[in-house]
């Protein structure tokens, strides 16, 4: 068996056990994604990575690559859907890019730029979300949380701590922390933990760094997110 799939007409090899996302990243093909991070078990919640496989929409970060799949990825139709999903993420939370310290380093903002999102389009929910600043070194600002569970996975799988979890359903779903007080300060989270640096938005940040990186030197100041994430994937493979 040759083990190849086709994405937008391009033939791409894959290895047994790889998802479509894995194979695409390895071949230098960008599929927009937010809750996926190659370092962690796929989660499949944001649906930004949706592609069309043999006529059906699926999340490419969880869908195994199977010989002969005909996949549509970078099409106007799919990108319009991704844009709408991103717009919904913006209005569901409180994302104020102009004065957010993550600006220029934020995957949510960068993916919005990549998808040519010009405005949030939908009405803002302006939800009341809690800020937990109790930890001496780490700030948890739920206003910016997109519920991707990367911190949950990082804490559980890498740090071995299970500091974070999601609770509640639908619009009431929120990020909770594992302490009797419910405060971050009473968990065993440390600033050096993977979970403290994995957040794709500015929801979990190490305190007091703020705007110390000048405009022009931030991750996405000169590079599109597709380039940044493909380069990261390449580097990751180099380490393997």
């Amino acid at each position: 068996m040759s083990n190849t799939i086709t994405i937008d007409g391009q033939t791409i090899p894959f290895q047994e056990g790889q998802t479509i996302m894995d194979a695409a990243l390895a071949a230098g093909v960008y599929i927009p994604h937010l809750c996926h991070n190659p370092e962690f078990t796929p989660h499949g919640s944001c649906k930004l990575c949706t592609v069309t496989v043999n006529g059906r929409n699926v999340a490419s970060c969880t869908m195994p690559a199977v010989e002969g799949q005909q996949i549509a990825n970078n099409t106007d139709e799919l990108n319009a859907k991704r844009r709408a999903l991103t717009q919904m993420l913006f209005v569901e939370g409180n994302h104020f890019c102009p004065f957010c310290e993550k600006s220029g380093n934020c995957n949510l903002q960068a993916v919005a730029y990549h998808l040519d999102m010009m405005s949030p389009h939908y009405n803002h929910f302006y939800p009341a979300r809690e800020v937990d600043a109790s930890h001496p070194d780490i700030l948890l600002d739920r206003n910016r949380c997109i519920l991707c569970e990367l911190c949950v996975r990082a804490s559980r799988d890498v740090d071995g701590k299970e500091v974070f979890g999601l609770s509640g359903r639908g619009i009431d779903c929120k990020l909770v922390v594992n302490s009797s007080s419910g405060d971050l300060v009473d968990t065993d989270l440390a600033a050096t933990d993977k979970a403290a640096s994995v957040c794709p938005t500015g929801a979990i940040i190490v305190k007091r760094h703020g705007f110390s990186v000048p405009i022009g030197q931030r991750i996405f100041d000169h590079k599109d997110i597709s380039q940044v994430q493909l380069e990261a994937a390449q580097k990751e493979r180099g380490h393997e």
Binding site: P98, C100, E101, H209, G210
Partner: peptide, 8 residues
């Protein structure tokens, strides 16, 4: 809000 955000 955390203080370091304020100047921006």
């Amino acid at each position: 809000r955390p203080y370091w955000e304020v100047p921006v």
